[in-house]
Amino acid sequence: MVTNMAPSHKVALIVGASRGIGRQVAIDLAKNGYTVVVAAKSTSDAYATKPFPPDPNSPQSTVSTVAREIHEAGGQATALPVDTRDFESVKKMVEETIRIHGHVDVLVYNSGAIWWASVENTPFKRFQLMQRVNPEGLYATIQALLPHFRNNGWRARIIVVSPPIYSRFFRGKTAYAMGKVGMSVLTKGMAMDFEREKKHDMAITSIWPAVSIESAATGTITRTDPTAERDLRKPTIYSDAILAMLNAPTKVVNGLLALDEDFLREYAGVTDFSKYSVMPGSSPRRIMPAKMPDLTVAEQDDEGRRTDSTKLRATKL
């Protein structure tokens, strides 16, 4: 595992950090010197939780227990409640983070709602939940943080849990894909804004697993089919990839829609991934394509007559 790669004064806000991947990212960033703020909807009395630590993929794992784990390992952590569907709750989370720690250097947006089914079999309320937690929650969190990034001289990193954009991803889960791909569009769009506005110390990057990762979601499968563990990796691959992204130059990662395994191989020099297998000695099946499509076009730099709605609105007032 990567260690000692970040100065202790850096603050990372991890939204969706109560269990699974988010918990692991929080723990490993803390091990690497970050002061972490762990935020999610679920909180608890961490010192009343027994046994401790709880199963990291169970409802007993909350941001409160994650913060306690980090404290007992010698790290710095603050647990905050947030409902990413509610912009006022998101703003309160950000304001409290700034009040306590003064600034935010890293945002990891890991909150997510999932429902994989056809449109016919996806109720509207389920569709609406996914849009509110996934793209809207991400947008709200970034909107709330932008004034603070400005005050910090536009020096920050944003990591988004969303996939590369390719057509096979939509199959069998259109409603879910609409939101997740929307998050990746935000990554691409903001990256171009940072570049055009010469915010060279800002970068936004998306990350997605190349192989299924052990989590609460995959746990529903392994409970009925224990052999499915051979196709799972530990969440440490995700946190190692994120640490590598945070230590890469902004020009390398800004606007990148990356897979954890591929980024570690191409930019961190990792060649042996066996330590990440949940089942020792197994070779987990890759679920993502080996090569992703290039989304650019020949006229990439031709914006035509670019319209700025804020300026148009100002002229009408």
Rank of each mutant, 00 (worst) to 15 (best):
S8L: 11
A12P: 05
I21M: 11
G22R: 04
G22E: 02
L29H: 11
G33K: 09
K41H: 13
T43P: 03
S44T: 01
A48T: 13
A48Q: 11
K50H: 13
N57P: 11
S64N: 07
Q76I: 04
A77C: 03
F87Q: 06
E96S: 08
E96I: 08
R99F: 05
R99H: 11
S111N: 11
W116K: 15
N134A: 08
G137I: 04
N152V: 11
G153F: 04
I159Y: 00
S162F: 00
R171M: 13
V181T: 15
E197D: 14
K199I: 02
D201S: 08
M202S: 08
P209E: 15
A210I: 07
A210E: 15
I213F: 04
E214Q: 07
E214G: 05
S215L: 02
T218H: 12
P226M: 00
T227N: 13
I242P: 14
T250Y: 09
K251W: 01
G255R: 00
L264A: 06
V270M: 09
T271N: 09
T271F: 00
D272M: 08
K275W: 04
K275N: 09
V278I: 05
S283D: 11
S283Y: 01
V297L: 08
Q300F: 02
D301M: 12
R305I: 08
A314I: 04
A314L: 06
